[in-house]
């Protein structure tokens, strides 16, 4: 049985914190990302998981708020820091965990790991290990929608560092000139590995770069799920109506290092602590409790339910068979139907 959170699809545009159902789904989504990543961080620390991974703890409102603006049939492209996007689009937590644990039942059958989770069934065209690598792919998937005359959109996630890549420029320009149904969601967490945005760009906001392509750009408080949803919902409606792409910049912060080798030499403890006080989950919880939409007990019950899902993902994935080297050579090319 699938072990997923139930993403919000087809929501009406009202703030996520306004009704119990949307508040519940949003909180569950953000908690799933947080707890999934805390779990893999711990598995890694205990030597039970190998390789590397990039954690998005602290950025959960961006992934979940943005995905809440999509329909089930829409597409996403994701990044090396992509667990949140996968979960936000409805990925199976057990298959994700199995992939990170190098199991045959993982999304990539153990061939991709944390950086390469894709899930055709939820429209996830893949996380990507190359900074900005997914941006032209998103433009192409959107071009296909336009050519086929569907009303599906593509949401393209990338970080601040990606906007200094040529791929960003080429792909956003293509999407702009062809009015493609794509939403460029930049998760500006202030650092491309160790290099800060203050050093890497001369413009104040990444959203300012939209002007160079003749498309709208908006800078959003990325730790506020309601704000992210509102901006992305506008951008999705615009894309779906055939008016082309939007650049949404979510200002956020990763609490953890870039990857497992990061010693945080480029930023201060105070800065990290300061951002922990802007925890997107605490912010959202406080809001819904204050609004009387959910009680503290209800929020705690959601967290407990997610903890159970994460625990189940680990126990099920751990007992799955290891990925199988025997099938590797035959897996490089898709077989031609009926032979060649």
């Amino acid at each position: 049985m699938a072990n997923t959170i139930s993403p919000l699809f087809g929501h009406n545009g009202a703030p996520l914190s306004e009704s119990a159902d949307t508040a519940r789904a949003t909180l569950a989504g953000m908690l799933a990302v947080r707890q999934f990543e805390e779990a893999v961080d711990s598995l890694f620390a205990r030597g039970l998981m190998h390789g590397t991974m990039h954690l998005s703890i602290g950025q959960e409102a961006s992934a979940i708020g943005a995905c809440a603006a999509l329909e089930q049939t829409d597409f996403i492209t994701s990044t090396h820091r992509g667990h949140g996007h996968c979960i936000g689009k409805g990925a199976d937590l057990t298959r994700m965990m199995a992939e990170l644990l190098a199991k045959q039942t993982g999304y990539c059958r153990g061939r991709g790991g944390s950086m390469h989770i894709a899930d055709a069934s939820t429209g996830n065209l893949g996380a990507n290990g190359i900074v900005a690598g997914g941006i032209p792919i998103a433009a192409g998937a959107a071009l296909a929608q336009k050519m086929k005359g569907t009303d599906r959109v593509v949401m393209c996630f990338f970080g601040d560092g990606a906007t200094n890549e040529g791929a960003f420029h080429e792909a956003v320009n293509l999407a702009a000139i062809w009015d493609l149904p794509v939403i460029f969601v930049c998760e500006n967490n202030k650092y491309g590995m160790s290099f800060s945005t203050e050093k890497s760009m001369k413009v104040e906001h990444i959203a300012d770069r939209a002007a160079a392509y003749g498309i709208p750009g908006i800078t959003v408080e990325g730790n506020d799920a309601d704000a992210v949803y509102a901006a992305c919902n506008d951008a999705v409606l615009r894309a779906r109506a055939g008016h082309g792409p939007t650049l949404v910049e979510n200002i956020t912060y990763r609490w953890k290092g870039h990857s497992k080798s990061d010693k945080n030499l480029y930023r201060t403890k105070e800065e990290i602590e300061d951002w922990k006080h802007k925890d997107p989950i605490v912010k959202f919880e406080n809001r819904v409790i204050e609004l009387g939409v959910l009680t503290r007990e209800e929020c705690d019950a959601i967290a407990a339910d997610i903890r159970e899902k994460i625990r189940a993902s680990i126990s099920e994935a751990t007992t799955a068979p290891d990925s199988d080297p025997a099938e590797l050579l035959a897996s490089v090319y898709r077989a031609i139907e009926g032979g060649n």
């Binding site: 492209t77 065209l125 690598g133 941006i135 032209p136 792919i137 998103a138 433009a139 192409g140 998937a141 959107a142 071009l143 296909a144 050519m147 593509v154 040529g166 791929a167 080429e170 792909a171 320009n173 293509l174």
Partner: peptide, 10 residues
């Protein structure tokens, strides 16, 4: 780069 990427995505 954009052209080939768009082809990959399509």
């Amino acid at each position: 780069l954009g052209i080939v990427g768009a082809a990959v995505g399509a």
